[in-house]
């Protein structure tokens, strides 16, 4: 058993009849028991990558291993170990929640003796017990998503692929969906690989993030690493009086300070990490008897990192609208 849940090398995919590469040499390693986010503009290859990793389509070139199974040749074994929720909709809306769980548990070959207990557990976990006999087309978007995840978790997969798990949901429903995912991974030690349009979710829930653009992974790391790689943080200090030259010199000498600019009573200081640098900057100013009236910190955000690596500004609205339209059509 390797330490990686996903291990992808030089992966390429060209859909038949098209000349553009949907994936153009993806290299990616995802450690086990991590929540891993993949971000990228529309058409960057997120869904294609996920569909290859869940063995739905075959790559044109390169290798991809999930849980140490080759997605190409060990697909049948691998499919028993993975959970997957596609971006659009993966439950039947004209039958009940319970019936959906029952059908999926049969497809996965869960023994009859265990079935009822597992379905019950899933319903409780996803807070759907009291609606279990209702038709899915009476459910809210958040409930449908939780049911889809319930269907994916019923076999206790070692890895879960979630393609835009919360797209189109309101903030409260999104939070609830994530609470469930996080608690499941904590209990089971499963790996989560998800794509999202919501930067705040990647920031908050992912242990590691990769940014994909034009079929290539352009950056990978934890959220702080990605933000720091964009540029330095900026501390803006409002003072009671303009800074004199001596105090300025003293500030410049500080180890953490990269650059400094004054503008009347305002001082802008660039540092690598504001949380580390702030105390020594303030101490230096105190020792020069300068009175500080306000402090403001500007940090690069994940959006800034996205913009830098994806080459386009972060705009979630387009993709979200599209998926919402599909889901509305499906639910009716």
């Amino acid at each position: 058993m390797t330490e990686y849940a996903i291990d992808v090398a030089n992966l390429e995919k060209i859909y038949s009849g098209r000349s553009k590469k949907a994936l153009d040499g993806v290299n990616l390693k995802v450690e086990r028991n991590k929540i891993f986010a993949i971000l990228g503009p529309n058409g960057a290859g997120k869904t294609t990558l996920m569909r290859i990793l869940t063995t739905q389509i075959t790559p044109s070139k390169g290798t991809a291993r999930v849980l140490d199974f080759n997605v190409f040749s060990d697909g049948h074994k691998l499919r028993k170990e993975i959970g997957y929720v596609p971006q659009e909709m993966s439950v039947w809306t004209d039958i009940s929640a319970y019936e959906n769980l029952l059908i999926y548990s049969q497809i996965y070959g869960i023994a009859k003796a265990e079935r009822e207990a597992l379905i019950k557990e899933s319903l409780i976990r996803m807070e759907l017990t009291e609606y279990k006999d209702n038709l899915v087309n009476t459910f809210s978007g958040g409930m449908i998503r939780r049911l889809e995840i319930a269907c994916a978790l019923i076999v206790k997969p070692q890895i879960i692929f979630l393609d835009e798990p919360t797209i189109g949901l309101d903030p409260e429903a999104r939070k609830k969906v994530w609470e469930k995912i996080v608690s499941f991974t904590k209990e089971s030690g499963a790996t989560v690989f998800f794509s999202t349009h919501y930067m705040d979710e990647a920031d908050e829930y992912a242990n590691e993030i990769a940014i994909i653009n034009a079929g290539k992974i352009v950056s990978q790391g934890d959220s702080n690493h990605l933000k720091q790689s964009v540029g330095n943080q900026e501390i803006i200090l409002g003072l009671s009086v303009p800074l004199d030259d001596k105090s300025k010199q003293q500030l410049r000498k500080l180890e953490q300070v990269i650059d400094l600019k004054t503008n009347g009573v305002e001082v802008e200081v660039w540092v690598k990490d504001a949380s580390v640098a702030l105390s020594s900057i303030m101490n230096s100013l105190f020792s020069s008897k300068v009175k500080i009236e306000s402090v403001k910190i500007n940090k690069p955000t994940l959006e800034d990192a996205f913009e830098k690596y994806a080459g386009v500004s972060y705009d979630s609205t387009e993709g979200i609208k599209e998926v919402n339209a599909v889901r509305r059509r499906i639910i009716g």
Binding site: R51, T54, T55, Q56, H76, R79, K80, I82, Y84, V85, P86, Q87, E88, M89, S90, V91, W92, Y104, I107, Y108, G109, F161, V326, R329, I330
Partner: peptide, 18 residues
């Protein structure tokens, strides 16, 4: 056709069902 538009077919393809 409908299940293709929705994600159900994709989902079924990722299950152990051949």
């Amino acid at each position: 056709v409908w299940e293709r538009e929705s994600g159900i077919l994709k989902r079924l393809l990722s299950t152990p069902a051949p």
